[in-house]
Design a protein around this nucleic acid. Sequence first.
DNA 1: TGACATGTTCTATTTTGTAGAACAAATTGG
DNA 2: CCAATTTGTTCTACAAAATAGAACATGTCA
Lengths: 109, 109
Amino acid sequence: MSRGEFLGDFEQLILLAVLRLDREAYGLGIQQELSARAGREASIGAIYTTLDRLEQKQLVRSELGESTAERGGRAKRIFTVTPAGKAALRQSIGATRAMADGLKGLGLA
Amino acid sequence: MSRGEFLGDFEQLILLAVLRLDREAYGLGIQQELSARAGREASIGAIYTTLDRLEQKQLVRSELGESTAERGGRAKRIFTVTPAGKAALRQSIGATRAMADGLKGLGLA
DNA sequence: TGACATGTTCTATTTTGTAGAACAAATTGG
DNA sequence: CCAATTTGTTCTACAAAATAGAACATGTCA
């Protein structure tokens, strides 16, 4: 009943954001990246729930960073994508790409 | 609480399959296309449920075709993607692409 | 130390994804 | 013409993913 190796759409976006932010991926930063690049406005709750789920599936790992010297700059939980996470991403993106490839009249050439 | 214009991953694949099959898109055909191109094995029930939801959202339309002269060849319910469906697809695929673009070390160049 | 800023967790709900049996309609052989 | 077979769709039920927002925690600074 599971979808096997395939990721949900939001899971894909989160994983991509974490990869993009490379070593500086944490909740709020991911939220901003998603908004800025993908135009997807997600609540902070939605993001953490998904990150937790991805960690359960061992597609990301997290570790506590250090607090910065900014006002309110408490320690961040930094996320990284595991090899399994990359593989899952490849498969999911590959599947969509295979379906989209060569399709015309959609303007996504 | 709605995700606005964004589609779920399976919805995306279904819409792409319908576009691909162009005028010949119906339940079983979509199932085969998904399996062959995307490597995604979905039950026929999963496919129809999703098609029904997409129709509710007016992202696809369906009409009853004619029965063919094959053994058991009863009338097919033929699906087409509406302009709104194409727009939603563009947006969803565009968002993922924007996030994936320029990412290295993932082998999906 | 209390006001404020940054960051994460918790709780609850809606939407999507999933399967498979039941049902419907067509063909064909006897 | 009707039983068996084939193609196709609908129905029912449940699991997983997406979503939000308040509550909570921790840090700075005046």
